[in-house]
Design a protein around this nucleic acid. Sequence first.
DNA 1: ATGACCCGCGCAGCGGGA
Length: 259
Amino acid sequence: MKLATWNVNSIRKRVAQVRAWLAREAPDVLLLQELKCEARDFPELDFAALGYRAEIVGQKAYNGVAVLARIPFEVRERELPGLASAGGDPLEARYLEIAAAGMVIGGLYAPNGNSGGVEGYRRKLRWLDALIAHGRALLAADTPLILAGDFNICPDDDDLAPGALAPDDALVRPESRARFRSLLWLGMTDALRALTPEGPLYTFWDYQAGAFAADRGLRIDHVLLSPTLAERLASANVDRAARAAEQPSDHAPVSVTLT
DNA sequence: ATGACCCGCGCAGCGGGA
């Protein structure tokens, strides 16, 4: 079982790259973020030709998440449960949850939290709180669970190049990092860190100022595994080659394989 | 060489990204 997550920064701009990556890597499931289009504009047929069925939660210009899978699956949720009652905005296309291969897989795009001032940051934290509550409920029922996507959190200092972000950036603020730790304390395993416990590990490099060439990156795309799935973890990789391609997304794909 | 990102939207330049 191979699962990957990729923030593509506009799916319509990235069809060729995603197609090439699917052909080369052949994941069973690929979670996509930042589609930046409505579902009807998602280039579904380009991926169907490679054997992938798509489910899309889209919105005009911003956000947007999708699943591409070549194994059977069914959709469980098209928005983050509990978010509306927690004061969040469920109209933002940020969560899509499926059941596949005996697992529940939540593909997510958490709010960045740097725009919209104090309220924008609060919205980010509320969104993450709803994710934690949802994860807690699933784990309480012993559901084999993967939560993966763009969390917009650098969990630790090894997860960003020195000086890549201001100390008060929403991606590294203590409240954001505490939310990530809460997910781990539920019993989830950070797949990349489980296999590379220390040292720099990045999944995003800014387009500006030669950040990729200088390896000034951030690790904000994560794959979290519930206990029984963590025991099956065989590999976890960041595909930097995809970031080095022509007209790349600013994020690289992250993939894991489970035995 | 005195500036150096990339999206969508929509046709200028702005908001958002991270």
